[in-house]
Design a protein around this nucleic acid. Structure first.
Lengths: 200, 200
DNA sequence: CAATAATAAATGACTGTTCATTTATTCAAA
DNA sequence: TTTGAATAAATGAACAGTCATTTATTATTG
């Protein structure tokens, strides 16, 4: 079982695919652009991934794996559970540093939602992040950062929605940076559940 | 001002365009599909709207007008300002009755965010809805439905984010219906600002 | 030699767009 | 009223371009 060695790894191709998507969007994605990015030819990509759709599925799969690895990080460098939570959400959107990139990644997500094969991975990322958020919220309650009796399951859903929605509104009005607005939005949602505050 | 009368109005074409986008998404949108929907031929659409891009711009323009009309509705049939607010948010997402349709409309929004010409209209819709939300929140404070001293501007931003984010997470995990989840999410965000509640 | 990777060239299917032509309507003159 | 020109809409055919994919060939290793 020998043969000519591959000139470029799958990981490099997938990273290049994500890069092109972030630049021109999934609708404008072409095998020629990806091939040019890694110094190959479109036919090679088809031969290695089966089809353009296969390349996208492979990218979605690795994205799900990467996200899961990120969500399982103990985040031990943060003393506070809430600080770790905010850092987690910020890091998971680190690639979308400009509104256009965010829009393109969001468009890719929309493609996932339509295609049954891709939707599975998008849902896996969503679930993985949800578990991480709920775990950190539980830790925050246990350590006294949040009120005892806080409904962490419901709060997890709210935080997931506010995270996605903040990105969308940021891409719309383009005020400030995404990390800034994420921190602010998450803080606003958490504020009613903080232990110390009783009123304004 | 003579000549052959148009067999089908612009409004019908734009509605058909939105219908096709809701079905196959903006990436799969083709002039042939829209033309077949209204009983015309692709060339006619190009002649009337200048180009495919022109058709999309026209659709975005009318969407902005429709949204603005909806947001300026006095919503007098609702006795409560908060009830009117929830109804407004539900109605503005009435066309996206299934996760796939929502994803496709969202993908169209992403296209808007990338294209400068389309972004203007998407931002106009966002601003228009923001004004309507803030106005209703102000009314709610004045009528005692919300605590006096509530920061309506900040709360408006949170509600816009939670609205968009709830749609996205609904398209992801597909539990329940969008109106249900919208009501629940908005209620969760408003709860800390209700006057009666001091604690659980 | 055997096996795999990469390539080059060609194909087929779409696409948006342009052009010349036909069809339908209104306006104006006889 | 009737006729004919002017105007605009719609059509069908053809164009040019792009894309993913296939086939056949060459290169590079064990």
């Amino acid at each position: 079982m020998a043969g000519r060695p591959r000139a470029v790894d799958d990981a490099v191709i997938l990273r290049a695919t994500a890069e092109v998507i972030g630049r021109v969007g999934p609708a404008g994605l072409t095998l020629g652009a990806v091939a040019a990015e890694v110094g190959l030819v479109p036919a090679t990509l088809v031969q290695r991934f089966g089809s353009k759709h296969g390349l996208l599925v492979a990218l979605a799969r690795q994205s799900a794996q990467d996200a899961d690895a990120l969500h399982r990080q103990p985040a031990q460098r943060h003393t506070s559970a809430l600080a770790a939570l905010t850092a987690l959400l910020v890091e998971s959107t680190a690639l979308m540093d400009t509104p256009e990139r965010f829009a393109n990644h969001l468009a890719f997500l929309c493609m996932d939602l339509t295609d049954p094969q891709l939707h599975e991975h998008a849902l896996a990322i969503h679930r993985s992040r949800g578990e991480a958020v709920r775990h950190l919220l539980g830790r925050a309650v246990a350590e006294g950062e949040l009120r005892a009796g806080t409904d962490t399951a419901a709060l997890t859903g709210t935080i997931q929605a506010i995270t996605a929605g903040t990105g969308l509104t940021w891409a719309l009005d383009r005020h400030g940076t995404l990390p800034q607005r994420l921190r602010q939005a998450v803080a606003a949602v958490l504020r009613p559940h903080l232990p110390g505050t009783e009123d304004s």
